[in-house]
Structures are given as structure tokens and as C-alpha cells.
Amino acid sequence: MSDHDDHLHPPAPMVDEVSEFEVLELAVRELAIEKGLFTQEDHDRWTEYMHTLGPLPAARLVAKAWLDPEYKELAVKDGVKASLEVGVDWVSGMPTQFGTPSDYCNLRVLEDTPTLKHVVVCTLCSCYPRPILGQSPEWYRTPNYRRRIVRWPRQVLAEFGLQLPEDVEVRVEDSNQKSRFIVLPVRPEGTEGWSEDQLAEIVTRDVLIGVAVPKPGVTANAKRPVRKAVNPYGH
């Protein structure tokens, strides 16, 4: 998000129409509050917090690790501590001060090597390192991705445009308990002498999940169509 320079530009265009979905969202929320399932205050506090989240801190963590071997060691050893340096406090940063139903306080940073490529999934639901990476993309939440990536990882990665040679081990990290994961990829060639800002720009959300590798010049996630699951496993 480029909210820092918002005030320099005229206001962005708005949708001047209330859709049925917008009404439904508000209606569901208000009824849930009226029925005592949660309070407006808790919802406000949480929503406000969620608005502050995005993939930038994780991208910065990776860029810093590429530039500073000591920081890299810390990141791999203690992701929670390393997160502090990019402004993410896994414990006290959240409104609850201890984590949430789906955001526990254990970040593990998975270091790729030229012969090891990590990719993250949550086969059971859709656990995601939200405090440092923001909201998960829809494809990450779909049964299609969750069921197939542990079963046919190379096919799924190929659908993202990532074909890996046989001598590279693909390691699928199934996020099923209290750790959350981001991938620390190999720094690509052609980035010699780059600053932390320049490096952080090519560390996209998809790179941090592990379905893409960083490339100079590529600063956005590829569009991914969401398909129905085929050959589903389990559930």
C-alpha cells in the first residue's frame, strides 16, 4: 500500500453505489453483535488492526537478511525476535496482546538454498502469518491449493509458473499447529549493490509464500485463476 503519499494526490474515485453484498456484510455483523456473539468495540479494534497489516514487513525482513548475515542468522533462529526489527511484535502487537485464534506467536523463517525450495500451505484450514504478511490471497484458502500442494507440489508450482529442476528438493511446509511461516528465498542474480528498499520491492507476497521466486523487475504477484479442486485428498 502506498498510503504515505495519499495526501499528494486527489482523492481516488469511489464506488457511489451500495451493493447488496455491502448491506449483507453489515447486516450479518450487526445481528451477530445484537445477539451477543461479540461486541462492536472488539470488532472495531480488530478491524482497525487488520487494516494496518500487509506483506511489507515480511519483504523487509527478507531484504535485510539478504544484506546482513547476522540478521539472517537471527531470522532463521528466532523469527519472532527478528520481526521486531521490521516493526512486527508477534506478542504485544495484536489487540489481544497474546495472539488470536489463528495467529499464534511463533514465526519460523524457512531458508531456501540453491538445492532446497520451501512452499507454505495449511492443509487443515488456512493458517497464514497475518501479522507479518497481511490477509491471505483467496487461492491460498481454496481446497484446490490446500489439497494438491502436498500431493502434487511440482504440478501446482508449475501452474504458478515455477518449474524446478530435479536436483532441487521441494519442501512443502504444512502449517498445522502454532508456528506460522514465511520463506526466505535465495537472493537472485542481478541484484548486486541494491539497497534494502530495492530488494524489498521484488519480495512479493507470492515469493514469501514460496510459490514464486524473486526476479529483478518483478514487483507484483501474478494473477492466478481459482479452479475447482481435482483429485481431492481427505476431508
Binding site: R154, E169, V170, R171, V172, E173, D174, K178, S179
Partner: peptide, 10 residues
Amino acid sequence: YFAKDTVETE
């Protein structure tokens, strides 16, 4: 031929 591939979980 992809025998090196793995899954890691807790």
C-alpha cells in the same frame, strides 16, 4: 525422480 521432495509439519 523427484524422490528428494519432502513435507515438513509439526
